[in-house]
Simulated scan of single mutants.
Amino acid sequence: MTKKHIVVASRNPVKIEAVKRGFEKLFPGTEIEIEGVSVDSGVSDQPMSDEETRAGAHNRAANAREKVPNADFWFGVEGGIERHNEGMQSFAWIAACADGQFGESRTTTFQLPPEVVKLVEEGLELGDADDRVFGRTNSKQDNGAVGLLTHDAITRTLLYEQAVCLALIPFVRPELFPGK
């Protein structure tokens, strides 16, 4: 059995579990050792654009690699929001790094309710705005905005898990990504 050491650039249990589940789906039979580490994203605490969120995911993966250089894979998971027409949408970017290569993917997006948008525009992070609107505590380390809005039909872990799988494509099918 192959063994892989995976580092997630976060101590958030949702992000760690999403990486674990996604990795296990694409590398069945692989024994994994997974750990979360705190590193800087190099972007705002609440990224407000697709570009900033993507950069945060890549920065986190690269910074995790610097912090724990002896691992096999490093993952950056960065949630973000962006204005879209009259509203605001939420999403995340996942960056996977191994052997000097990167794979990346973005989750699907979903619309945020006006009350949450107002609080974010006043300077709250999305998780804090969700907690205030929904009367919760630390929902970003649980079901997240998507779980709160879908009655847990889609949780934050599930949302991220699919994108983790997609970010791993270059490592699952390396023959299709020469020199990546």
Rank of each mutant, 00 (worst) to 15 (best):
R60I: 12
L158P: 01
T108E: 13
K3S: 00
G80R: 01
P170C: 13
V172A: 11
I34G: 10
D130P: 04
P174I: 05
G29Y: 01
V7S: 00
D72K: 05
S38N: 04
A9N: 03
A153W: 08
V77K: 14
R156W: 06
M88K: 09
R60N: 04
P113E: 07
Y160M: 12
S41M: 11
T109R: 07
A9L: 10
K25V: 08
P114I: 01
G56C: 03
D72H: 14
F134G: 04
I32S: 02
S49E: 07
C97G: 12
G42L: 00
I6Y: 08
A55Q: 02
V39T: 11
I81T: 08
T137K: 13
F27V: 01
L26R: 10
I94A: 13
L119G: 00
G100Y: 12
R21M: 05
G144Q: 05
K180L: 15
I16N: 10
N63A: 05
G80I: 02
L119K: 09
E86Q: 05
A129V: 08
I154Q: 13
S38Q: 04
P174H: 08
Q46L: 06
V133T: 12
A64P: 08
R173T: 04
A57T: 07
C165F: 08
R60Y: 03
F91A: 13
A163E: 00
T2L: 03
F171N: 11
P13V: 12
E31S: 06
N59Y: 04
R54P: 05
V7T: 11
E33M: 08
K180G: 04
S49N: 00
G87V: 12
F73Y: 07
P178V: 06
F177E: 11
T30D: 04
S10I: 06
T109V: 11
A57G: 06
K15G: 07
D128S: 15
S44Y: 02
T30L: 12
I169Q: 09
R65C: 00
T30Q: 09
P28N: 13
I6S: 04
A64K: 00
F91Q: 07
I16D: 01
I32A: 07
F177R: 04
K67V: 00
A98K: 09
V172E: 09
V116R: 00
A98Q: 10
W93N: 03
G22N: 03
H84G: 03
A71Y: 02
F73M: 08
I34A: 10
F110Y: 15
N85Q: 12
G87M: 07
I94G: 03
C97P: 01
V19Q: 06
R106N: 05
R132G: 04
A61T: 10
E175N: 15
F110S: 09
L148M: 14
S139V: 15
I16C: 01
I169M: 15
V43E: 03
G100N: 12
N138V: 14
A18K: 05
D152N: 14
I154R: 09
D50P: 02
Q101N: 14
Q101E: 08
C165W: 00
G80K: 06
T107M: 05
V8D: 05
E24W: 01
N143F: 12
G29W: 04
V120F: 04
P47H: 12
Q111V: 06
G135R: 14
V8T: 01
V133R: 13
V68G: 06
A57I: 00
D128P: 14
